[in-house]
Amino acid sequence: MNIFRLAGDMTHLLSIIVLLLKIQATKSCAGVSLKTQELYAVVFVTRYLDLFYSFISLYNTVMKIIFLLTAFTIIWYMRKHKVVCQTYDKEQDTFRVLFLIVPCFVLALLVNHEMSVTEVLWTFSIYLEAVAILPQLVLLQRTKNVDNLTGNYIFMLGSYRALYLVNWVYRYFTELGYRQWIVWVSGTVQTCVYLDFFYYYVQAWRNNERMKLPG
């Protein structure tokens, strides 16, 4: 494992910890999209089915379990916690997730490495992860004012993807025969989804002010 991959994973982990801490400390999930969190849960469940039949490393197994558990913990807080669930912007978080799930599934059926249940679900998880942040970005656009923690959460998620891109370039030049087109193309799309957000995040940071999105 190279440094870019490790930094990417750690940034991903940190983004989830930031979100959980925000929810726990402020007892509020205002500005957080439940739809995006549920999509991530679907992504992790469909991708990490291999926990049952393949072992890569202790690091891999532990990280997969952490991602699964934290995804469901966040959803539990937003749906079931008696204080936190009241702060959820249900009326604003109206993105139609089937518009993401169905096309991703159809694409996974059409473009995959192998026509098997686990392989199609794995491919589906790759496609779905690329667009899973969209409900969150739409919610952000609607509520306009972005609180610091939500902003940092999304910034770290975007950074994790950017670090994975660097990791792929590094692996391409250091590992003979290493290529994975499905992952590369979806990962590039996924990183591009964050570009607009990055622009406003950096601009707010440079001007030392709260982040605001244009209408």
Binding site: F67, H113, E114, Y164
Partner: peptide
């Protein structure tokens, strides 16, 4: 199977 990449990334 051939063509299926090693899934060592998260």
């Amino acid at each position: 199977a051939a063509g299926v990449c090693a899934k060592d990334e998260l």
